[in-house]
Simulated scan of single mutants.
Amino acid sequence: MTVPTAPAPAGLTTGALARRLGVSPATVRSWERRYGIGPAHRAPGRHRRWEPDDVAVLEEMCRLTARGVNPAEAARAALAAAAGTAPALPAARNGAEDVNGPASGGNSLPVGTVRPECRGLARAAVRLDAPELARILGRSVDELGVVVAWTEVMVPALRAVGRKWAVEGERYVEVEHLLSWHVAAALRRAADRAEPPAGPAALLAGMPGELHALALEALAAVMAERGLPFRMFGPALPSGALLEAVRRTGPPVVLLWSQLARTADRELVARVVRTAWGPQGARVQPVVLVAGPGWAGPRRPPGTLRPRDLGGAVDLLTDLLLR
């Protein structure tokens, strides 16, 4: 005779729910105690189980607090939405905010004192909340402009996930991949949205072997936003292809990106600097910019300019393309 086994308990434990939301279990318990956001049904004993409707309320609260809404107001709005009363959306707080407080917990991305948009981006990334990532990034680009969205929203979150990935290993690789993909998608949409301007175009490319391309994507998006013509060749352009692209397109400016010192090939840059085109007696050479931390050091490659940051690169490109 077979003895029937007890059915597995339904719903999520508090620990599993906290991992899903990207907050600490202490935060979940604190929200339950302070704001009455807890499981609608509780089994006998001390172990709480969170059903899908309970989880949806907390996910909505996370989205609201990620946008800068006060936790108490966010809790009221999330509970009202679950009840179908749909109150007016609480006002978000403006300005920078420190997210390294108790609410962050071990499952968060500690990003320091940042804009509310960055805090929301970090929390959505840990939750693997793709729709919220897309919403925050799209709104940041639209409302703040590409430069501010990149430097104050995207970069701090990307750096935080990089630090977390380095410490935690494969546990956070999925967070980094999802966040990077959505950042690239948001920047690509911004770059593709503008009408392609006429005139000689700058050539943008990553050095051979350089696989990091998000900063190049950000540069292209800013150039599109400002109506500056460019051709984007992306990361890891082989040396022969780079030289051929310069000869074939005759760019007034070439910007070469290196994230890592090992990809900063000075000899190849010297060959690009010497590349010329046009009729005999009136041949033209490009102005070459080397950008990215791979070029750090006291001496830049001869015959080149080295912008310090995204804004500096755009200013240089503007001067060189419109002169």
Score class of each variant (00 low, 15 high):
124 A>V: 08
316 L>N: 00
312 G>W: 04
99 V>A: 07
12 L>S: 05
165 W>Q: 04
255 L>V: 08
130 A>N: 07
295 W>V: 04
287 V>K: 05
134 A>W: 02
3 V>H: 07
309 D>H: 09
29 R>M: 11
273 V>E: 09
73 E>H: 14
184 A>S: 10
288 V>I: 07
215 A>T: 13
195 E>N: 13
149 A>N: 08
183 V>S: 04
73 E>T: 07
22 G>N: 06
222 V>A: 11
165 W>F: 04
315 D>N: 05
103 A>I: 05
260 L>C: 12
160 A>D: 01
308 R>M: 02
179 L>E: 14
116 P>V: 00
109 L>A: 03
163 R>T: 08
120 G>R: 00
213 A>W: 03
200 P>S: 11
138 G>W: 01
73 E>G: 11
139 R>C: 12
209 G>R: 14
269 V>R: 01
278 G>W: 09
255 L>W: 06
37 I>F: 12
135 R>P: 13
279 P>Q: 06
77 A>P: 05
29 R>S: 04
61 M>E: 02
323 R>M: 14
48 R>A: 08
88 A>R: 10
199 G>D: 13
305 L>V: 15
83 A>I: 07
161 V>K: 01
77 A>H: 13
139 R>Q: 15
228 L>I: 10
287 V>A: 07
323 R>F: 14
67 R>F: 02
248 R>T: 15
238 P>H: 15
240 G>W: 00
307 P>Q: 07
49 R>C: 02
70 N>S: 03
154 M>Y: 03
306 R>D: 03
18 A>M: 13
225 E>R: 04
58 L>D: 05
203 L>T: 02
174 E>Y: 12
129 D>Q: 12
192 D>G: 08
115 R>H: 06
264 A>Y: 15
16 A>S: 11
285 Q>M: 13
100 N>M: 06
120 G>P: 00
102 P>G: 11
256 L>Y: 01
204 L>M: 05
168 E>C: 09
91 A>Y: 09
105 G>C: 04
102 P>S: 15
154 M>T: 01
181 W>H: 14
67 R>Q: 06
219 L>P: 08
252 P>Y: 11
1 M>C: 10
69 V>E: 04
174 E>P: 13
215 A>F: 08
297 G>F: 14
